[in-house]
Amino acid sequence: MIKMLVVDDKLELRTLLKLAFQNRDDYVITEAEDGEEALTSIARHHPDIVLLDVMMPGPIDGLGVLDAIRSNAEYAGMKVFMLSARGQDRDRADAMAKGADAYFVKPFSIIKLVNTIDQTFNLAS
């Protein structure tokens, strides 16, 4: 069972991700609307993977959450996939440098995202 946290301020996107995994029994999905909520959720659930939006309102944005995860040894091995409307190389490089495992630019192929997550955990869809 893979524990997955979806963090995005947009309801449509959270809905999209939940729907993409609606038929999968091997994933358990939790949602968060902003950075603070995400960190609370991570601390409680210790997700295996976090799908993290970069631009979010509130004091902690996506990169802030990433930093927090990577700076905490408890969360070692936690997968972090960045989902961002910012598609420039610099944004991507920044995120990867901070320890992101993947970087998806919106709009992205939801099928491809699911496949990538499956491969990460050696699961078949």
């Binding site: 947009k10 999209l16 729907l19 993409a20 409307a85 598609g87 919106k106 709009p107 992205f108 939801i110």
Partner: peptide, 11 residues
């Protein structure tokens, strides 16, 4: 534009 597009594309 990417944000609404992401929903449309994904759905």
């Amino acid at each position: 534009l990417r944000t609404p597009m992401a929903s449309i594309f994904g759905f």
